[in-house]
Simulated assay, not measured.
Amino acid sequence: MKTAKKTVNSATRAATERQAKSAAVAKAKALAPELPARIGATPATRFRGDPDIFGRLVEDHDRHRALLAMIDATEGKSPERQRLFKELVLEIKGHAAAEEQALWSTVLRDPATTEDARHAVAEHHEMDEMLADLAARDMASSGWLRRFAKLREEYLHHVREEEQEQFVAAQKHLAPADVRYMRRVFNRRKKAEKAGAEVEKKIKLKD
């Protein structure tokens, strides 16, 4: 009986995760329905589809994975590449700022998780620099494509690390009521931060 119940719960959980991932990808696809959004298999995470801050953050991560894949499917200075890159910049900047306010500002105050929070925030700043560098360069150049590939690699590493390590560590030190409240804070701040975000252009001297 217990085994059957566990199997049903596992199947329900898997269905919830698939639905959450599909919904996030669909949001990205709405910008350019004709482009593929092949994000493939994603790193295992316990949070996809959860009704709390961590589930909400993974939702954004999946949307960003789709945007990165779609940009990779564009060419030159096409309107699709320009539109999708702008959306990616505003999405990541709004997401990072809201994540810092809703989650990491609290996690920073706990000595047990301070280092994880600092690491995540530091990588947010690195992403900002890489996005600004890309925005300042010629989208049709081989150099832009090379730098975009590097950004994609770094961002996918960043979100994988958050989902598999940093969120897990933070959850252990937060009450269930806290993570549910943080989702509401994140949603409010994400909307405001994305609306106020801009595409900055600043070339980095070092590759």
Rank of each mutant, 00 (worst) to 15 (best):
A15R: 02
R188V: 02
E123M: 09
K190Q: 15
R109L: 12
A41W: 13
L145I: 02
H157W: 07
L156F: 10
S78D: 04
A122K: 13
M182I: 02
L108G: 07
S22G: 12
S105A: 10
A195H: 01
D52W: 00
N187V: 00
S142Y: 09
E75M: 13
L35S: 08
R183A: 06
R180A: 06
V58R: 14
A32D: 05
A23V: 15
A73D: 06
A117D: 11
H173N: 13
G40I: 01
F47W: 13
T114A: 13
T114N: 13
R118F: 09
T113S: 06
A14R: 14
T113Y: 02
R180E: 07
A120M: 07
A4C: 00
E165K: 11
A14T: 12
L174A: 10
T16H: 05
T16P: 07
R65E: 07
E198K: 14
V168K: 08
F54L: 11
E59G: 07
L67V: 04
R46F: 12
I203K: 14
L84Y: 03
R118T: 04
L84C: 02
E165D: 07
V8F: 09
A24Q: 01
I53T: 10
V25N: 10
T3K: 13
Q82S: 05
L68P: 03
V159L: 13
K194G: 10
E161T: 06
E154G: 07
R65W: 06
I71P: 01
K86F: 09
L174H: 01
T16R: 06
K6E: 15
K204L: 14
D52I: 05
W144H: 06
K6P: 04
R13M: 15
D128K: 11
H157S: 15
K204D: 14
T45I: 03
I39R: 02
P51K: 01
A30N: 04
R152A: 14
R188T: 11
P43I: 05
R180H: 10
K172E: 13
A26T: 04
D128W: 06
A117Q: 05
L131M: 07
A136R: 00
A32N: 01
P111T: 02
V185K: 01
V199E: 09
A177L: 12
V107S: 02
L35E: 08
R183G: 00
E165T: 09
T45A: 04
D116Q: 12
D62F: 12
L90A: 01
K29W: 10
E75S: 13
L145H: 04
E99Q: 06
R63F: 08
D72L: 05
F54N: 02
A41S: 14
S142T: 15
L35N: 08
Q171C: 12
A98R: 00
L151C: 05
T114F: 08
K6C: 02
L84E: 00
T16L: 04
E200G: 15
D62V: 10
I71F: 01
V8P: 04
K27Q: 14
I203T: 11
P79R: 04
L108Q: 08
